[in-house]
Computed example of a mutant assay.
Amino acid sequence: MFSDVEGAKSFYGDVLGWTFGESSSEYGNYTQAYANGKAVAAVVPPMPGQEGMSQWCLYLASPDAAATAGRIRENGGEVLMGPMQVGDFGTMCLARDPSGVVFGVWQAGVHEGFEAPPEQPGAFCWAEVFTREPEKSDAFFPAVFPYTAKQMQDDGVDFRLFEVDGDMILGRMRMTDEFPPEVPPYINVYFAVDDCDEAVSRATKLGGVLRFGPMDTPFGRFAAISDPQGASFSVIDVSKTEGEMPQLTDVS
């Protein structure tokens, strides 16, 4: 969601190599983004009442958006919009977890979601819930979605993984005092790149701000960036890994 959609298309086209489809005025000027011809994201203008805000929103798949909306309410979350049908594309709703993290729910119709594999440059690769109240998110997401959870064994970092059938789906990170108080809880999305440092260089030359990194991890070399409109995202080169995978403990 971007106040300046054309600016976002120019920035992400240059940084991530995206191309864009035709804007659909029937659906709020929704514009599909592609990497190598595969759907990876979309850009839209802000909804009424949210002008001036630019941010990424991750949509989590559901076989029944109405039932998921019910579980969201039952478990202390808030449904902000919907569920509403979007033509024959699918059904969406927007929600907020009890700790303040905004996310979407998508019941697929003809639009099933991501088409590119997560390791493909330009593709959505990973996401993490950043919250100051992890205990609320930790209880909420497995109650609403079919998640099991594992906690990273690291005294310095409070990090949890949510899985579905053994596949890692979503991370959860406790926001420390390093985050300014005005930064709200959010879901940070990661896009794959073939060279993290080059992607950072392209982003900063175009007005993006490097927030963290680049840093080598067992998952890949990554960096956190704010785009020129203030939307946060990360880039990661999953081919460059360093160090041993962390120990995880089942907490489901």
Rank of each mutant, 00 (worst) to 15 (best):
G122Q: 00
T31E: 00
F159N: 08
A61R: 12
Q55V: 14
E135C: 14
T91M: 14
F212D: 09
P246I: 02
D194Q: 05
H111F: 05
M173L: 15
F103C: 12
I169T: 11
E182M: 08
V189D: 08
R160Y: 15
L94R: 14
T91H: 13
D250H: 10
F11D: 15
R172K: 10
M1C: 13
P134Y: 02
Y186V: 09
P121D: 04
Q247K: 15
G87C: 07
A192T: 15
N36R: 14
F233P: 01
V43H: 10
G243D: 06
L161T: 03
M215K: 07
G90R: 02
A35M: 00
S232N: 10
A39F: 13
A39E: 06
F219K: 02
K136M: 12
W126Y: 11
I72F: 01
Y147K: 13
I169G: 08
M168A: 15
P117S: 10
G28V: 09
C125R: 04
W56V: 05
A108W: 08
F2S: 10
Q151C: 06
M168G: 15
D216Q: 02
S234G: 02
G243M: 06
Q32T: 15
A149G: 10
A66N: 11
K38H: 14
F124P: 02
A41I: 09
F20N: 12
G100T: 08
F114T: 09
Q50E: 12
D227T: 11
L210C: 11
F141Q: 02
S232M: 10
E26C: 08
T31Y: 04
S62Q: 05
T131Y: 10
P83W: 01
I236N: 01
L206C: 06
V251C: 11
E78D: 04
A224I: 05
A42L: 10
A42C: 14
P228Y: 04
G113E: 08
E22P: 03
G208H: 04
G122M: 01
A143K: 15
S10N: 11
F222Y: 10
G104I: 00
D14H: 11
R202Q: 06
A223E: 03
A39M: 12
S23F: 04
V238Y: 03
M1E: 00
G171E: 04
V129G: 13
D197K: 04
F233S: 05
Q107N: 05
W18L: 10
E119G: 03
M53P: 06
D4P: 06
P83C: 09
M92V: 14
W56T: 14
V238H: 06
S24M: 13
R73Q: 07
M168C: 14
Q107C: 06
G49N: 11
G17R: 02
K205W: 04
L206K: 07
A127F: 13
H111W: 03
E178D: 11
A66Q: 09
G37K: 02
